[in-house]
Amino acid sequence: MTRSRAPIGRWAIVALCVAFFAVPLVALAIFSFTSGSGWTTAAYSAIFRDAQFWKSVGLSLLLAALTTVLSLTLMVPTVLWVHLRAPQYRSLIEAITLLVFAVPPITLVIGASGLLLGLVPKLLGTPLILVPFYIVLSFAFTFRALDAGVKSVDLHTLVDAAHSLGAGTASTVMRVILPNLRTAILGAAFLTITVVLGEYVLSSLFLYNTLPVYMADVGTSQAQGAAALALITVLFTWLLLIAVSVVSRRLGGQRVGTMIAST
């Protein structure tokens, strides 16, 4: 689509949307650094002094790490298996990953709470119970990222070439397939980490103090503190995205930004 006429209308809509996207983030930053009288970092120092903050950061990072590792351990072999050996199951797996959207987290919570502990979730024991649910919540993203990654390399040719050169299945996977899927795996990991770090519904209703739950809690009494926490989260997500993009570009893979947008 090319047009010769002056694109004023199109520029106006882009400017409007960019302003709409940018203003809340800029306001968040300014708000977190101001008090009634002027500029201050009081909100940040109060948060960093709060032991509960470090606990919730620790819990959220632990959940993110466990979920990412276990999710990839589950999904990479599944996607490879489906593409190499059992393509008849691909659409079934895709349907299950899409089912996640049909069962919203809030309904997942009430269904699971009925099964696990009666309706009132008090004694679930360990926050690690969240991990399998987070793996499920990130199914669609990991599946699509890995599926697209596998489709973009000629998997069958790679496997046949490796086998004809005498490689066994294990060394084919480790030394041929996985290196070719690095960008897809990075993208899937990034999406999983984003899902876990932002997840509020399950952790708040199962009564675990993850970072978003702590943030909401702070927000009920100190708006500046909550704004500071929100800004830290947003900046961390973007830094992570930039890091992942840089690494994957260095590896010579597909652009992660393009991939994330398409999942």
Partner: peptide, 14 residues
């Protein structure tokens, strides 16, 4: 994907 808690506070701040 940026729903949830940070979004709520971004709008509280604006």
């Amino acid at each position: 994907q940026f729903g949830g808690v940070p979004l709520a506070f971004a709008f509280v701040a604006s």
